[in-house]
């Protein structure tokens, strides 16, 4: 998947799963949209479905510190490259 495809997929997940439409790419999700740890865990599940893989505990732990959509996209791009 390209960077743009991943970005579109993440924004679609935000709209479908979290009722957050077109979040700013550099907005702090916690501060602006009250996106919390439970949301992050749900998002990780969606990322697993998107990539078709099971994430390891370490990969999930690393994601818990992410705060912006751009960081999420970078995280997914890194995972995607690792899988390829």
């Amino acid at each position: 998947m390209t960077h743009d495809e991943i970005e579109k997929a993440i924004i679609r997940i935000f709209a479908d799963q979290f009722e957050i439409e077109n979040p700013g790419l550099n907005d702090n999700l916690r501060d602006v949209y009250e996106f919390d740890s439970i949301d992050a865990i749900e998002l990780l599940r969606e990322i697993e479905i998107l990539l078709g893989v099971q994430l390891t505990r370490e990969e999930k732990k690393a994601a818990m510190e992410i705060r912006t959509v751009n960081q999420i996209v970078d995280y997914v791009v890194r995972l995607d490259r690792k899988i390829e």
């Binding site: 919390d36 740890s37 992050a40 865990i41 505990r57 999930k60 732990k61 818990m64 510190e65």
Partner: peptide, 12 residues
Amino acid sequence: SSAEGPLAELML
């Protein structure tokens, strides 16, 4: 109630 730092693992 939040999963920052060392509590991330517990939350997961």
